[in-house]
Simulated scan of single mutants.
Amino acid sequence: MRRIYYGRVSALDRQTAASQYADADEQGIKHSDVFIDEGVGGYHVSPSERPQWQHVERGLRKGSVLVIRWLDRISRRYDELHETMQRLMKKGVRVECTLNGMVLDGQEADPTRKAVRDAILAFIAAQGEADYRYRRENQAQGIAAARQAGKYKGRKPAVDYAEVRAYHAEHGGSVRALAEHFGVGVATISRALNSDDTSSK
Rank of each mutant, 00 (worst) to 15 (best):
Arg73Thr: 06
Gly150Met: 02
Asp160Arg: 08
Met102Arg: 07
Gln52Pro: 00
Arg2Gly: 06
Val164Asp: 04
Asp23Ile: 01
Ser48Tyr: 11
Arg3Lys: 13
His168Gly: 02
Asp72Ala: 03
Met89Cys: 02
Tyr5Gly: 03
Ala149Asn: 07
Gly41Lys: 00
Tyr152His: 15
Glu108Thr: 14
Tyr5Ala: 02
Leu66Val: 09
Lys91Thr: 15
Arg133Gly: 10
Ala144Asp: 12
Ala162Phe: 06
Gln148Asp: 15
Leu121Gly: 05
Trp70Asp: 11
Trp53Cys: 01
Tyr21Phe: 15
Lys30Thr: 07
Val9Glu: 08
Val65Leu: 06
Glu129Val: 09
Val34Gly: 01
Val40Ala: 09
Tyr161Trp: 09
Gly150Arg: 07
Leu81Thr: 00
Gly63Thr: 10
Leu104Tyr: 10
Asp25Ala: 09
Pro51Glu: 10
Asp197Cys: 10
Ala187Ile: 00
Val186Thr: 08
Ala126Phe: 12
Glu80Val: 11
Asp110Trp: 05
Ala162Ile: 07
Gly39Glu: 11
Val159Met: 02
Glu49His: 14
Gly183Ile: 02
Trp53Ile: 04
Gly7Lys: 07
Ser46Met: 06
Ala18Leu: 11
Val175Arg: 05
Arg87Gly: 11
Gly28Asp: 09
Glu137Tyr: 09
Tyr167Asn: 13
Ile29Ala: 03
Arg117Gly: 00
Met89Ile: 09
Pro47Asn: 10
Ala144Cys: 02
Asp105Ala: 11
Tyr152Gly: 11
